[in-house]
Design a binder for these strands. Sequence first.
DNA 1: ACGACACTGAACCGATCGGTGCAATGACAG
DNA 2: CTGTCATTGCACCGATCGGTTCAGTGTCGT
Lengths: 115, 115
Amino acid sequence: MVNHMVQHDVLDRIYSALADSTRRDILTRLGEGPASIGELAEPHGMTLTGMTKHVRVLEDAGLVRTEKVGRSRQCRLGDERLDDAMAWISFYQRLWERRLDGLEAYFTLQRGTEE
Amino acid sequence: MVNHMVQHDVLDRIYSALADSTRRDILTRLGEGPASIGELAEPHGMTLTGMTKHVRVLEDAGLVRTEKVGRSRQCRLGDERLDDAMAWISFYQRLWERRLDGLEAYFTLQRGTEE
DNA sequence: ACGACACTGAACCGATCGGTGCAATGACAG
DNA sequence: CTGTCATTGCACCGATCGGTTCAGTGTCGT
């Protein structure tokens, strides 16, 4: 019964985390495998402090999971939180398709991307 | 050959447009059909000025198309710009799946959501 | 124990954001 | 023409953002 109104806070965090090209780069980089804060910071010519904050944002959004190992912190991709974001987008796309079909009164559509 | 690196500006605009629950509500509302600025503003108890700015953000992101008709402005859903956002998210998800599969060296994967 | 190393907390900075109020502007009704 | 209505431009406000520097804190190597 997973209604599509996930909980706005969650979507806020996910989308605003994605709304920054540095953060998207981080995700792409982590797609190649885990990395430390320093390894993430270097290619962007950014301070460790700055990168720490970016990673924190991604972690708060559930997109990245980190673990302190020794004196460095290992960052990996998080659990598949993007499903929420994806679901909302496809919900929107469904609305858009409906606009094409010209069905304006029909607003039930509970079945969709969510089960 | 639409590489997935769409152009960061575009994704920045799309995702930050989506990163606000008011704006997501607007999109949902527009899914029911076109509306004026006033009609959009009223359910949020928001100033017309404020709503105008939100709509502008959505329009700059290509998510909404507007047209001035008489003394009011009609807002409808825009072209399917969300494909870009969707493509990037599924690119990420592909990375995530790859992480599950433990294939870390394999980084070709040009086929995907984009044609 | 000592120093180098990787990160983090706090304070700060300029820019952007979400929102407001106020004063145009432009269209419609009479 | 006059007044009303819908929207918009401008200036402003406090909050958040992306980024920095600087001073810790904890860990590793010797």
